[in-house]
Design a protein around this nucleic acid. Structure first.
Length: 304
DNA sequence: CTCGGCCCTGTCCA
DNA sequence: ATGGACAGGGCCG
């Protein structure tokens, strides 16, 4: 096992591991203490979290990475040198101070940024991100998380680490072997055929979410909606949480409520129009950061 | 392009 | 105990 630590005090804008991985933007991390991801962060912030870096990223075997925030450092244990993986997955390369400075002054944004100072966006591997947000339709955080764990256990490559067995998220090829009925048995409900079809599309080479990286933001969102089960909202989630489009603002029910209550002039006739207006209001290039803070602030009972 | 009906399922609450 | 509302949408006509 390799170990290491990343000092956090010099990191611009700081870091909050628990808020980052439990805020509903990523479903590839789990708590080592097996506590569920709840709707609020009730359980203290120095727990160990783990993820399995997929083979598509390592270029070799999937690699278990474990990390916890403790005493001003991000400590890690892994099968490989995990430093670069952690920087990439947890966006430790973002200058959070600069991002907040580039975001307009606004009572709601200020309150949201204050409440979870140090929370960062994530940079998930694209296929797991795509599948988990297809599963997110009309679903709570803890249940989405449960679905992803069942998919990994059932179809993912088992990986031994530190005396325990972990499971990588299934590759497109592995997941494409699942039938709609198989996935309904894992409680995916009406999302089962969407996941099966999308896995098949990626496995056969019909389309890959990474292709959207080379497009302009709005074209990328449009490109991503070709996957079955992916509308504009889910496409925005994949663009923001995996493909580095930090300007993407997923219009979920929480943000729609915030728009109605705080920015009614941003309500356009359709998704694209509203999205453009609120993106502008949130400062443009890093509007997705503002969205994620506001979303989490409101979802966890923040005053409006 | 917009609209409404419909979809699985666990949890919460009357 | 038990039924209806609800939860971070998308598909189809």
């Amino acid at each position: 096992m390799e170990t290491g630590e990343i000092p956090l005090e010099t990191l611009p804008g700081g870091f909050d591991l628990q808020a980052t991985v439990e805020s509903g933007q990523t479903y590839v991390w789990s708590r080592e203490d097996d506590r569920m991801f709840e709707d609020t962060l009730a359980h203290g912030g120095d727990a160990w979290y783990s993820t399995v870096v997929p083979e598509a990223v390592t270029g070799g075997a999937p690699a278990v990475v474990r990390a916890r925030q403790h005493d001003g450092r991000l400590e890690w244990e892994a099968a490989v040198d995990a430093h670069d993986h952690l920087v990439r997955l947890l966006r430790l390369d973002d200058d959070l101070d600069a991002i907040m400075a580039a975001t307009p002054e606004d009572p709601l944004l200020d309150a949201a940024f204050d409440r979870y100072r140090g929370m960062r966006l994530v940079r998930d591997p694209s296929f797991p991100c795509l599948v988990s947000f297809i599963c997110s339709a009309q679903m709570r955080v803890s249940r989405i998380h449960g679905m992803q764990e069942r998919l990994a256990r059932e179809y993912g490559t088992p990986v031994e680490f530190d005396g325990a067995t972990y499971h990588a998220f299934p590759t497109p090829e592995q997941l494409a072997t699942a039938t709609e009925v198989d996935l309904r048995d894992l409680s995916l409900g009406y999302r089962a055929p969407y996941v099966a079809r999308t896995a098949e599309m990626v496995a056969t080479g019909e389309a890959h979410p990474d292709t959207a990286r080379s497009l302009d933001y709005e074209d990328a969102r449009e490109f991503l909606t070709q996957f079955v089960g992916v509308g504009e909202k889910v496409a925005d989630c994949v663009a923001l949480f995996s493909l580095d489009f930090l300007e993407a603002v997923p219009l979920d029910t929480w943000i729609r409520t915030a728009i109605a209550d705080h920015y009614p002039d941003c309500e356009g006739g359709n998704y694209a129009e509203t999205s453009r207006a609120i993106r502008e209001r949130f400062g443009g290039d890093y509007a997705g950061y503002a969205q994620t803070y506001v979303f989490f602030h409101l979802r966890t009972g923040g005053e409006t």
